[in-house]
């Protein structure tokens, strides 16, 4: 399974006041098993791009090919697209509606028309995969859970559909540091276990640097960088000019280099940075 996006453009409210070009000729590919990070300033078109990938918005022009189906073709069944591609929205907890957690997680698999037994098995698996205790939460109302727990249940609702591509739009927005780490840990675990493509939008550069195999940078609807985290974050000044930071380690080394220390700045973790500084000071 791979994703290929070609010359994708999208305009909101075309021909009406408030018209805005939200995607401008975006092309990229995501390979099997890759974890792709997307970064960009607020309003740069990240969420719009994700909704295209799942067929919720239809592009003005361009194509998206997932595996060997062209999902921008109007003949493609949307249900099969949603079976293949799971999208977890920003603040997904507002989508919860059922009386119990188990029923809510079962909503997606139910829509796929699976057997009851299969649904039950998937619900249990998904709830456990997001780090909740199935027997403890299954009969609780989703509305009596904490914010972080609600978020997990909402993510479980998508994971239970076993998508081959899992897309998460800022899954850690508004969570406390502990819940933040837990959710990302959970994404890593799912990624490793399912071997699926994961596309992750985040405003936290350290998270992207630590997790992503490939980083896409969006600015004003355009895809302006596409490469490994090392390659992308090495362009510190360019990123700064569009209002984006780099991981803390890269920033420190970059500044030391600017101040005359003889180090290369293309590293992503603090441990690595410490080693390089130590080596440079020897």
């Amino acid at each position: 399974m791979s994703i290929e996006v070609k010359n994708l453009s999208y305009i909101y409210n075309e021909g009406f006041p408030g018209e805005s070009l939200a995607l401008d000729d975006v092309s990229f590919a995501a390979l099997d098993g890759e974890l792709v990070g997307i970064i960009g300033h607020t309003g740069s078109g990240k969420s719009t791009l994700l909704q295209q990938l799942n067929g919720l918005l239809r592009p003005k022009s361009g194509t998206i090919i997932v595996g060997d189906t062209n999902i921008t073709d109007s003949k493609t069944s949307m249900l099969s697209v949603r079976r293949t591609i799971g999208l977890v929205f920003q603040y997904p907890e507002y989508q919860l509606f059922e009386e119990t957690v188990a029923k809510d997680v079962a909503y997606g698999p139910g829509n796929l028309g699976l057997e009851q037994e299969e649904i039950d098995a998937r619900v249990r698996e998904a709830i456990e995969m997001v780090g909740l205790d199935y027997d403890e939460v299954k009969n609780k109302s989703p509305f009596e859970l904490s914010g972080g727990q609600k978020r997990r249940v909402a993510i479980a609702g998508v994971i239970a559909m076993k998508p081959q591509v899992l897309i998460l739009d800022e899954p850690t927005a508004g969570l406390n540091p502990k819940a933040h780490d837990d959710i990302l840990q959970m994404v890593e675990t799912i990624h490793q276990k399912e071997g699926n493509i994961v596309i992750l939008v985040s405003h936290n550069m350290d998270d992207i640097a630590a997790m992503a195999d490939r980083v896409l940078v969006m600015d004003h609807g355009k895809l302006i960088m596409n490469g490994s985290p090392q390659e992308v974050f090495a362009r510190r000044e360019e990123l700064a000019s569009i209002g984006l930071a780099v991981p803390a380690a890269t920033e420190i080394l970059g500044r030391l280099k600017d101040a005359g220390l003889n180090v290369e700045a293309d590293c992503l973790t603090l441990d690595e940075a410490a080693d390089r500084i130590a080596a440079a000071l020897k």
Binding site: L56, F89, Y107, N111, L112, M161
Partner: peptide
């Protein structure tokens, strides 16, 4: 806007 957002989220979960 809220309705649109919720509809999309449920559609992503296969709602028809």
């Amino acid at each position: 806007e809220e309705t649109d957002k919720i509809m999309k989220a449920q559609q992503a979960r296969g709602a028809d």
